[in-house]
Amino acid sequence: MAADQGDPNHQDPNRRDFIHIAAGAAAVGAGAMAAWPLVNSMNPAADTLALSTIEFDLTKVQEGQQVVIKWQGKPVFVRYRTPAEVQRARADDHARDLKDPEIDADRVKAGHQQFLVVIGSCTHLGCVPTFGAGDYGGWFCPCHGSHYDTSGRIRKGPAPKNLVVPTYDYVSDTRVKIG
């Protein structure tokens, strides 16, 4: 239909001229430019990101106890371990039944080994383990029976990994910044 316009100047409009490719490419670019802000708006907003780090005062934890704080919507255990608990953890550093081998010193900060900071979410399917229960004196997850030791390492049960140690730093001797 387009070919029989009978005009010698007329070309087949479907010819792949450069200008059509350029216009088409610009249209694709415009589409991407329009779509990106819509997609990016679903990324965490500024107020969510602002709560991505929190500070915690360690004087609130008693020796042998733990405090649970909320960070990024998840529970974090801050546990003040007794010397006996630290020793028990270190004794098992090279135990052969460790599913996820890790030594205790790598899971705490140098000079502050009495404080263990872990995310309180079982690495199996996310339940919150209970403090002090289980066969290894650490934590016990009631959902499917995972046992963690006093370093938060998985010792028995279906969980594949040790309790995750989040990024944290000591801003002073008594204050940690998590995240």
Binding site: N9, P13, A23
Partner: peptide
């Protein structure tokens, strides 16, 4: 320009 090229001669 693309539009003009398409309509050229029509």
């Amino acid at each position: 320009l693309s539009y003009r090229r398409i309509w050229k001669g029509v």
